[in-house]
Design a protein around this nucleic acid. Structure first.
Lengths: 396, 396
DNA sequence: TCGATATGCGGTCAAGCGCAACAAATCCGG
DNA sequence: CCGGATTTGTTGCGCTTGACCGCATATCGA
């Protein structure tokens, strides 16, 4: 029963976490604003802020010049020296970044590889990058931990990658490898789930407590859920695998001949195919689709058909999620954002037609906001989680 | 900002709620057991228990005779005089019950009606029942509130029934009606969602923090989710409408000609049809199916086919939910329980075949445990919610 | 009957937050 | 340029609450 939540100690820790969490999420805040946001007393906020400064987690600055009467309030900001290391191994590269407590990317490296990286190699690359930064541009930084965004199934309890098809990792104890190599506490998560967390905290889903996030990548469709303002992991942390779902009803009689799942039907590869590309980044693909739609009639019709087909199937999947979860927001990233952007009204209408009217009325569909920083921010968030949950235990 | 969660007051209230919640959920507990379960000090538990007794929410009894050494510890039990009124309007009857804090049904009435009850009439029937009980068998009871389990879409914020197709209620402010008629604080919820809560707290889902509940009734398929140990309502409280989902992939080419949703394909009416019945309770239906399967070969094959078809479609819907939510348990109630019981292995296998292997491995499929008391218990839980969340505010 | 175990009870202690009074910093109007 | 109004930081005090300690008490087993 080590939680101590019923005791004074618990209150103090919670309040400390609350203040740190606020400056982490909202950026620098005046003490006055913190008293208003937390409901705590001025004197309490002063004490808590002082304690965070002493722990090296926050800093207090001179008040911002404001044009209002009254004594100016000092500004509490996350200590810029606290950073987390975010790592995202992919098929063609490993991206490593140092992310500050405030959410800023302090440093970033994309290490191109000409072979599939093994888990051990990923750990080594991470340790190397940390070493370089420790001696160089981040000489004064304190490294809070490492967060990995892995494109595959990750068991939350021990950070084991059950299966990452494109990296060809199986039952890889990546957390252990990275902790061993770096000496830092490490968190591991599914890339799409971490993307959902990032969008929820800093992106298109700010302040929204119930949302569904779907991301379309080259490797398939992943996603994540936020319920009650908290990320949903499920029992083992596998939650959010929308790509494996089967939307739409099987036509009567046939025993589900085509075993197609969502990510077989709604796929980036099919879009590339339709416009005759072989690998392109998202803007290129979007531009190619747009120009194809305005090109020769035959091509245009074929591309429009494929877009329409994918949009309808995606709409069914979204409608299913909306019926079950009644979210206030659906966020689409990757090529799903492209698909949505090409005709937002059509997607919305198709979804509304298949979801319960009441639930469909509540839901907003938006495009992801964070771009290529998303996974770095999500992974850093995972790395910061312990610190933010209990600053005293993690930094004291 | 009236939550006071950061202050001592907050600690005290939380601890009080914790102790009351434990005796509510687990039944009578010795003070010694409470200290172990909460991690609080002996003296603290003694004080909290005393306070609950003074508030009239609990009672302390002489120690149970135990065969262990040491001084026996007094037993803390929920005060049997505290009751909630649970109401479930249906097409052919309104069921009203008085449920004790311990979860026991203290009184119950099923009022048959020969017409569809209006919301106002439901409120009146509830007030009448309370009046009779107040003067009669529950003379000494304290009524904590009213909980309604409505077979339809309920907006959580104000207890408005958006649409209850079988009752033909539309935009019915049932909460206001019942509060007006009874003078008691009233909570309203969807019947299946409340059933999920009941099964989670007292039934097949005890102690399970991530579960999916699906109930098959005459009117369709409803459900509820528990995530992080908390019921999921969504933005407006509509969450859990699995019946409106479309499982299975549309066969290529055709534009989803059959617009069938889950509850069109997996339905009690079709099962009744298959065995040639016209309305029967669940045991009768189950018996009819079993005997049909052992009857003439032609009939048996037809019934088996229909069972198989429904089972496959249900399995797809379950697999979708398992992929997205990674629950540790799926609970099936109503005719879905019958469907599962007839061949549990087949259902499980069909689900596992369509879900991600890792997620499918984690999940257990069980049949609901509470029977006809389920909705009464769920509705009572909704009525007790305020009291359990903050005993001081609600009873002081 | 006595020792071991476990609990209740009362008192003391420490910790955390709210509160109130005072001081400081800013704006505004004359 | 000055004084009042306003807002907020600072400081010391007091209240509340739960932990801890010592002692009394209750039960069981030898």
């Amino acid at each position: 029963m080590g939680d101590r939540s019923g005791s004074f100690d618990g209150v103090h820790r919670r309040n400390l976490a609350r203040v740190l969490g606020l400056v982490h999420l909202e950026g620098p805040l005046s003490r006055a604003r913190l008293t208003a946001l937390t409901g705590l007393n001025r004197s309490t906020i002063a004490a808590l802020a002082g304690e965070l400064v002493e722990l090296g987690l926050a800093e207090e600055r001179a008040p911002d010049p404001t044009n209002r009467v009254g004594r100016p309030s000092p500004v509490v900001a996350p200590d810029p020296r606290i950073v987390a290391i975010a790592v995202n191994p992919e098929v063609d590269a490993v991206t490593i970044a140092a992310v500050g407590l405030g959410g800023r990317i302090e440093a970033r490296e994309r290490i191109e590889v000409d072979h599939l990286v093994a888990p051990e190699e990923t750990a080594r690359l991470t340790a190397d990058a940390i070493g370089r930064w420790r001696d160089g541009e981040l000489r004064h930084a304190r490294f809070a931990g490492v967060g990995l965004a892995v494109p595959g199934l990750v068991r939350a309890s021990d950070g084991l990658v059950r299966f990452a098809p494109h990296l060809e990792w199986r039952e890889a104890p990546i957390r252990a490898f990275v902790e061993e190599a770096t000496g830092l506490p490490t968190a591991v998560g599914n890339d799409a789930s971490l993307g959902a967390i990032a969008e929820h905290l800093f992106g298109a889903g700010r302040g929204v407590d119930d949302l569904v996030y779907l991301n379309g990548g080259a490797s398939g469709i992943g996603g994540g859920l936020i319920v009650h303002g908290r990320p949903v992991g499920g029992t083992s942390g596998y939650a959010g695998e929308f790509g494996q779902n089967r939307p739409g009803i099987a036509s009567n009689g046939d025993r589900r001949a085509a075993g197609g799942v969502l990510e077989d039907e709604v796929s980036r590869a099919r879009l590339l195919d339709a416009v005759g590309l072989r690998g392109a980044d998202e803007p290129t693909l979007a531009a190619a689709i747009r120009s194809a739609l305005e090109g020769p009639a035959g091509d245009a019709a074929r591309v429009a058909d494929e877009l329409d087909r994918q949009r309808r199937i995606l709409a069914t999947a979204l409608a299913n999620a909306v019926n079950v979860l009644n979210p206030s927001l659906v966020i689409l990233g990757g090529f799903l954002a492209t698909l949505a952007d090409l005709d937002p009204a059509a997607l919305r209408a198709a979804m509304a037609a298949q979801a319960m009217p009441a639930a469909a009325d509540d839901v907003d569909v938006r495009v992801a906001a964070l771009g290529e920083d998303r996974l770095m921010i999500g992974a850093a968030e995972a790395a910061f989680a312990d610190l933010l949950a209990d600053p005293l235990a993690a930094a004291g």
